[in-house]
Write a protein that binds this DNA or RNA. Structure first.
Lengths: 343, 343
DNA sequence: GGCAACTTTGGAAGCGCTTGCAGATGCGCG
DNA sequence: CGCGCATCTGCAAGCGCTTCCAAAGTTGCC
């Protein structure tokens, strides 16, 4: 493998000049730059990543910690992160910690702290204050996607607000018997996202003077299959059936629709369903939802990070609210027996 | 940040001994090892990744190239890869090349070749002979998952065989009007997987003396929504309707089931559907399928790779066939009007 | 008890770059 | 024409480890 020395020799320059020429930093005459470039190209030379990282202290590598890349939201975020990072010439080191907190812990200690990454993006992961301090202590910017990360920059959507909006959409259509499907155990590790959305639902219901019936509060694990099981219980039970369901995610909304179909309920005539996410499958099910551009969130996270790395001005922690987009399709309409919206 | 020197000083040893003690390579007395360990722990010392890589030539990092981490199969493989790699103390650098061939190309040149990774795992990506040579030339073992990669080790399932088995399952139930949904454009970049599965279908049909009707050969992009659209055309068209559909993936099978339901077809009474994958949603839909353990494939790939790296005995290219598992659920049964299997 | 054969240790030379520093070169202007 | 300043270049000192080599310490055996 050719080294920078070989290039220098061939170009008739010193390694210092070649290094400057290829990296674009420092003053180099056009002639030298050209020579260095052609020599490098002719030899098929590529900088040794480790050598330059060691010498410069920069890695061009960011660590991404996600609960599970096999889930819709996280993989979408990772795609956004990946594309933006690749464009900027950065590597992405993936830490998929689906095995649980132990894995998360060891990843932090054994990998992230080993000076391999310039920064870390934590998706929907709640790090302890101590963990954040560790990272900040070694001057690694952190950005969290999906919730507050004390001391770090974050990107999040207005969970409470959109949940309220979703609920209000149903209320405005004339519904009063509105159930809510929220998240459960799996998302304990996250930023209490289910709680925030639930809060928005409560707020809207209360503001409209509607009862929040306990038997209409169900939960699932944010998957279609989990929601399907929960929805069967909700809709097939002996208690009165709601006329609308607000699910905290599109996958859960879809699970609910599937369960409803099993009971012969027609969507939206017998049951309105609304979700949150902007899942690709939404279209097939005609799902009304609030689209959060997960890829866009990932891309933004990277841009924030890189801005911070380049400026070196440690910018301080910022908290960015990412915009969402209400998408009305055919899974919501007026309640059964109703003739139109309340006004 | 403490360096190995600080540890050596504190432990009253040389850096050489500390290095050996911490890495476990070379002979070190129990006493020295203990001292080095405690000193390191007390100082919160972690090896600098780049420095040790540079000095040793080993990276403890493998590159994983996938078409898109947002798709079921790839993300499952990545999870398997990730878990196994993390256990072995390796980093995983993710190259998500969903933006197309240009991205794939630049990734290879700008990243993989920069000596950053010890090995690469390519998932369902067809690399050109030249690309493979480049990687092999710099002594980077490659393993491909999902098809033949000339010169590299591969892991794959018996696509033709399971497609044949799936088709035979339908034939044995008494079906003769069997449609096939195969993949399309997106998978051009892959290992002709659709073609292999199609081949198996053809073989089974022909062996049973059944016609392969062109109007029953449809294709989609391996997604639920794509298959849904195709299936609507297949089932809602004017031509005779098949009594069974063999879809080349579970997601496409699910899309087919959804479309069938739209037409009021009952599964499996009016239409049998079988897929391939072992998708989590299979259970909700009662989908009969052939389970390929995607996570397991990822894990195996890593094990092969590490074995190769450790032995340094460049093992040569191996081709491993990964076992699959037939899962019969409720989406397949005898054809309408039939009373039971043929024997 | 002495010698060969191990085991353990430290010195020091890199690994392949980047970058501070100082010298060389070029240019504008009085 | 000479001086000052800006631009370009090369030398050499690292970056923080690993590992070769030789020296020192142990052990076992005849």
């Amino acid at each position: 493998m050719p080294g920078i020395k070989d290039v220098a020799e061939r170009a008739g320059l010193s390694t210092a000049t070649v290094s400057r020429a290829l990296s674009g930093k420092g003053n180099v005459s056009a002639r030298s730059r050209e020579r260095a470039r052609t020599a490098a190209a002719e030899l098929g030379f590529v900088l040794s990543y480790h050598a330059s990282s060691l010498a410069s202290g920069r890695n061009h590598n960011v660590g991404v910690v996600v609960p599970s890349v096999h889930r819709w939201y996280f993989s979408a975020v990772v795609e956004g992160v990946s594309a933006t990072l690749l464009d900027a010439g950065y590597d992405l080191t993936l830490y998929n910690v689906s095995e649980g907190p132990d894995r998360r812990h060891s990843v932090l200690n054994d990998f992230l702290l080993r000076k391999r990454v310039d920064a870390v993006i934590a998706v929907s992961l709640e790090l302890s204050a101590a963990e954040i301090q560790q990272l900040l202590a070694i001057h690694r910017p952190i950005v969290g996607i999906g919730g507050p990360l004390p001391g770090a920059s974050t990107i999040r959507i207005d969970d409470a607000g959109i949940a309220e909006a979703a609920t209000n959409h149903l209320i405005r259509l004339g519904h009063s018997k509105i159930a809510h499907m929220t998240g459960d155990a799996f998302f304990e590790q996250d930023f209490r996202l289910p709680g925030m959305r639930q809060g928005g639902y409560h707020k809207a219901m209360t503001a409209a003077g509607l009862p929040v019936r306990p038997e209409w509060q169900v939960s699932a694990d944010f998957t279609v299959q989990g929601a399907y099981a929960s929805a069967r219980r909700l809709l097939g039970g002996t208690s009165e059936r709601p006329t609308a369901v607000f699910a905290a995610s599109d996958e859960m909304a879809i699970g609910t629709i599937l369960a409803a179909r099993d009971f012969g309920l027609r969507i939206p005539y017998d049951l309105s369903v609304i979700g949150i996410d902007g899942h690709e499958l939404g279209e097939v099910f005609g799902l009304t939802t609030i689209d959060q551009d997960a890829r866009g969130q990932g891309a933004l996270a990277v841009r924030l990070l890189l801005a911070g790395l380049e400026d070196a001005a440690d910018g301080g922690a910022t908290d960015t609210e990412f915009p969402t987009n209400f998408v009305v399709r055919s899974s919501t309409s007026v309640p059964p027996g109703d003739t139109g919206p309340t006004h």
